[in-house]
Simulated assay, not measured.
Amino acid sequence: MTTKKATAKKSASKKTASKKAATKKKASKRTPAKKAAKKSSTRKYSPSAGKNVETEMREMKKGTLKSGRSGKKVTNPKQAIAIGLSEARKAGKKVPPPPKKG
């Protein structure tokens, strides 16, 4: 009986030692990734695109902003921002393409 308990303790200590070693390896891999990330110095959105979004937000707050074909009143701020960016894209202003669905 004592031999089984002793072997169980040894195997348990090996497992914890291997887990500790694994966590140390993961931590060392993360630090270089932070240094590799660069901030882009160029603007993603043009200032005039921001003005489009501002006007759409004002319209939404007044209650005059309507959505596409249905003409329903827009009450969600995120939807108002999306409409502003969409209009900026149509006008040819500097705005990244919309995120892909799916």
Results as ranks from 00 to 15, higher is better:
Ala82Pro: 04
Lys93Tyr: 08
Ser48Trp: 00
Asn76Gly: 05
Lys10Cys: 00
Met60Ser: 07
Thr55Ser: 13
Lys34Asp: 06
Ala22Glu: 15
Asn76Pro: 03
Arg58Phe: 05
Pro77Gln: 05
Gly102Pro: 06
Ala27Glu: 14
Ala33Arg: 12
Glu87Asp: 10
Ser86Leu: 09
Pro77Lys: 06
Thr3Lys: 15
Arg58Leu: 09
Lys90Asp: 12
Arg69Cys: 11
Lys26Tyr: 10
Pro32Met: 02
Val74Trp: 04
Asn52Asp: 11
Ala33Ile: 09
Ser18Cys: 09
Ser46Ala: 05
Ala27Gly: 00
Gly92Pro: 14
Ala17Arg: 14
Pro32Gln: 08
Ala8Pro: 00
Thr7Asp: 10
Lys51Val: 03
Ser67Tyr: 11
Thr31Cys: 02
Lys66Met: 08
Ser86Ala: 10
Thr64Cys: 01
Pro97Asn: 09
Thr2Ala: 15
Gly92Ala: 07
Ser28Glu: 15
Lys25Leu: 02
Ala80Val: 04
Ala49Ser: 03
Pro99Met: 02
Lys25Asp: 06
Gln79Cys: 11
Glu56Gly: 00
Met57Thr: 10
Lys90Gln: 13
Lys25Ile: 10
Lys51Tyr: 04
Lys35Arg: 04
Ala6Tyr: 00
Tyr45Phe: 15
Arg30Thr: 11
Lys39Met: 05
Lys38Met: 04
Leu85Ser: 15
Gly84Cys: 02
Ser40Tyr: 04
Thr42Ile: 12
Ser40Ala: 04
Glu87Phe: 04
Ile81Cys: 05
Glu54Pro: 07
Thr2Asn: 15
Lys25Val: 09
Thr75Lys: 09
Ser86Lys: 06
Lys78Asn: 14
Ile81Asn: 14
Val74Glu: 00
Ala33Asn: 13
Ala6His: 08
Ala6Ser: 10
Lys101Thr: 08
Ala21Cys: 04
Lys39Glu: 06
Arg58Pro: 06
Ala6Asp: 06
Ala6Gln: 07
Ala22His: 10
Thr2Gly: 15
Leu65Val: 01
Pro32Glu: 10
Lys14Gln: 12
Glu56Tyr: 05
Lys10Phe: 02
Tyr45Leu: 10
Lys26Ala: 13
Ser46Glu: 02
Gly50Asn: 08
Ser67Gln: 06
Thr64Tyr: 04
Arg58Lys: 15
Asn52Pro: 00
Thr75Gly: 00
Lys100Thr: 13
Gln79Asn: 09
Lys24Ala: 15
Leu85Glu: 14
Ala12Glu: 07
Lys29Pro: 05
Lys9His: 00
Ala27Phe: 01
Ala21Tyr: 14
Thr2Phe: 14
Ala17Ile: 03
Ser41Thr: 14
Lys100Tyr: 00
Thr2Pro: 07
Lys72Val: 12
Lys94Trp: 08
Val74Tyr: 12
Thr7Glu: 08
Asn76Phe: 06
Asn76Leu: 08
Lys44Asp: 06
Gly50Arg: 08
Asn52Met: 11
Val74Ile: 15
Ile81Pro: 02
Ala8Ser: 05
Met57Phe: 07
Ser13Val: 11
Lys4Met: 01
Lys15Ala: 12
Ser40Gly: 03
Lys72Thr: 12
Lys15Ile: 13
Ala33Phe: 01
Lys44Pro: 01
Ala17Tyr: 08
Ala21Thr: 15
Asn76Glu: 07
Ile83Val: 07
Ala21Gln: 14
Lys26Ser: 07
Gly63Arg: 04
Pro32Gly: 06
Arg89Tyr: 00
Leu65Thr: 02
Pro77Leu: 03
Asn76Trp: 11
Thr7Phe: 01
